Structure formats: C-alpha cells, structure tokens
Simulated assay, not measured.
Amino acid sequence: MELSEPLAVVTATHWIPEYRQKPADLEPSRRPADPGYTALAVSESCSGPELAVLAGRVALTAAGWDGADVGLLLYAWSHYQGHDFWSPAHFVAAGVGANSALPLGIQQMCNGGAAAVQAAATFLRGDPRCRRALVGTGDRFAEPGFHRWTGDYGVAYGDAGTAVLLSTEPDARPRLWLHAIATVAAPQLEAMTRGDDPAAPAPRWLRGAVDVRTTKKAFLRTLPRNRYAEIERAKLTEVITTALADAGLTGDDPRLARVILPRFHADALDSGYRPLVAELTPADTVDFGRDTGHLGAGDLAAGLADLLDQHLLAPGEYALVLSAGVGFSWSCAVVSRPVPTERGGDST
C-alpha cells in the first residue's frame, strides 16, 4: 500500500507478561529437541483481549490521548479469545474507553496485526472524519488447548498484547512515520493448518489441543519437495521489494538501517529469512523473539514497540518490519524516525 503521504505512528507498545517459561521448566518428555528460543512469555491469568487492553491503556497514556477521542479500533488475534460467541474487538474498545470508536475484528491469523495496520491506514486516509486509530492485538496460547512449545513446526508461541496509535492530525507528534505497508498472499497454502481434516461443528471437536504439526504434515505430503520454501521465498521477495518501491526506497539506500524479523524459530530465520534479506539489503536484521516467542498476531506491532524502546533508529533512518501468518500472507511495513525539523517529530 503506497501512502500519499506518511502516516503518523504516535506510539507503539506491547504488554508482555513477566513470566518466562524455559525449556528446562518442562517435563523431559515434553521438551522440544531444538527449542529455537531461550524462553517464552506466558500469561498465567490474563486472556488475549485483556492483554490488549493493558497495552492499549499504556499507549493512550504515553500519547496523552483519551480513549473517547479514538475514532477507529481494529483488533486482531490468531487464537482462542476466551469466549465462544463474542466480539473481542468491542471488549478491547470498552476496556480502553474508546466507546465512540468503530471496533472491527481482523482475523488474518498471525499476520493479523499487519493487516489491521494496513486497514487502519486505509480508513484514516479515506475518511477525513476519522483522525485517530488504535490497532491492537492479543493472544494467549494456554494449556491444555495449545501446546506452545510443540504444537507447531518452525515456531513456538508466547503471550502478549500490543497497541499502535495512528493519526492524520496535523499536530500529531509521531515517534515514527509509516511510509508504506505491503501485503502479499498465497491462498493455495490455506490447507497448511487444515490438512485433510473434515470440517468440525465446534472448536477442538477432533482433537483436545490445537495440533498444527499434524495438519502441516498432511498438507506438505501433497506438495512437491521444497515447493513451500520456493513459494515463501518468492512472496517474501515480492513483499519487501514492493514495500521499498512504495516508500520510494531501494534496498541499498544508506538510510535503511534495520530489518525487524518476525519472531519465528531461530532455524526458520537462519535458513530462510536472513539469507533472503541479505540479498535484498545490507541493512542489519534484528530478532526480538528469542525470549518471548512468536506473539501470534502481535509480531509486527511488538517489533515497532521494541524498535522504539531500544532506540534502534537515528533521526531520518528507516526500518522494514516483517510479519507473516498462515493462510498464507506476508507483510512488510516501512517506517522512519522523524528528524527534529519534521512536524511534531519525536527527537528522543
């Protein structure tokens, strides 16, 4: 998505539980052979939407916003939200005091946060009456319904809520500028998390826990060897080059300083993402996920938050923030840190 002018990212925050579960904490029979992470963030009580409310409140306070002034609230998630027949987006809106906002749920699995940012940008640029948006995510991968370490291949799952505040107000004080966000999809891979299972009448009807490994095995048996890797490589190349072009950049632009990777297993990053990124840009790759795990729909927003918290961009420098999710879809956001002379830019 090429923006006619940059969009203000007023702030980005995450609420990640303090408790970290390490492989050594697991029963020997349940420890993964190759963990890929030092620890996973585990919420011992809060649901995904509750984590999102906590992150949203922090973001609003940091920005000096009142929830009542938020016109749009987009909320994304990838796993069970705590109730069977319910709108978590409305819960999050009420929880942050955004009772005049339009709450919309975005179900794009683990790429949901990126899809929500892209949708919010479309709303903000398309409706002059909507000037402030909150994009939130929340996921909790709790036992017994989800085995966070061993329920999937290529990723282990941590819990978190995130919030990104976007604005088109002339006096907005952005901590980042959003220059472009691109998304590409490969719907032919949708059966990766369906396998050959029949449609069930209720959640977890066929199995007591989510079992992505079984569905992936079933689906991959139908593909030629290495076909998935070929598709992923082509789509990642497309989404990164498209986002760069939409932002008016090239991969060798000296202002491009960082590439924030999704919080996937170390092997998945080392074998796929890092080599490809290195072909497209010399910018440094950054992996924030080793002691949190993959945060469901929250990887892109959490990447923005850590990019800010760790002061990884100098004024005028750019970063790419990557996200992906089953379905499949891949996203790439292009952001920069404002320079002191830019309108309302954050110089901290």
Rank of each mutant, 00 (worst) to 15 (best):
D171V: 02
A55P: 04
H79S: 11
P262G: 00
S347T: 14
H179N: 10
I231Q: 00
G154S: 09
T222E: 09
D246C: 10
A68S: 14
T285N: 10
A101R: 04
G95P: 00
G136T: 15
R194V: 05
N226L: 13
P88A: 02
H294E: 01
L223M: 13
D66H: 11
C332N: 09
V212N: 13
Q81I: 09
I231W: 06
T222H: 11
G36V: 14
V10R: 10
P170D: 02
S336A: 07
G303H: 02
G272Q: 14
R207P: 00
R337H: 12
A185F: 12
G97C: 07
A62V: 07
T222M: 06
L223D: 00
V42L: 03
S331Q: 03
D66V: 03
Y19C: 11
G296W: 02
T292N: 10
E238Q: 15
T292M: 12
R175K: 13
K217D: 14
L73T: 05
P282T: 00
D287P: 05
W330T: 06
A234L: 04
C46M: 15
V321A: 09
S87W: 05
G344V: 09
T122F: 07
S347E: 07
E238M: 08
W15Y: 14
A278G: 10
A120Q: 10
T11Q: 08
F85M: 07
F219T: 10
G195T: 12
I260S: 01
F288Y: 15
A41S: 15
D346V: 10
K216I: 07
C46F: 13
S271A: 11
A319R: 10
G67P: 04
G67Q: 01
T214C: 05
T237M: 08
D127R: 14
F328R: 13
L322R: 06
R207N: 08
L189C: 08
C46D: 14
C110V: 11
Q310S: 12
V58A: 15
A180W: 08
L249K: 02
G151A: 09
A76R: 05
T348R: 06
A142H: 03
L176N: 00
R125L: 07
D299L: 03
P203A: 05
P23K: 14
V339E: 14
E143Q: 15
R20D: 01
Y228L: 15
L51H: 01
S331I: 02
D270M: 12
A94R: 15
A245W: 01
G158E: 03
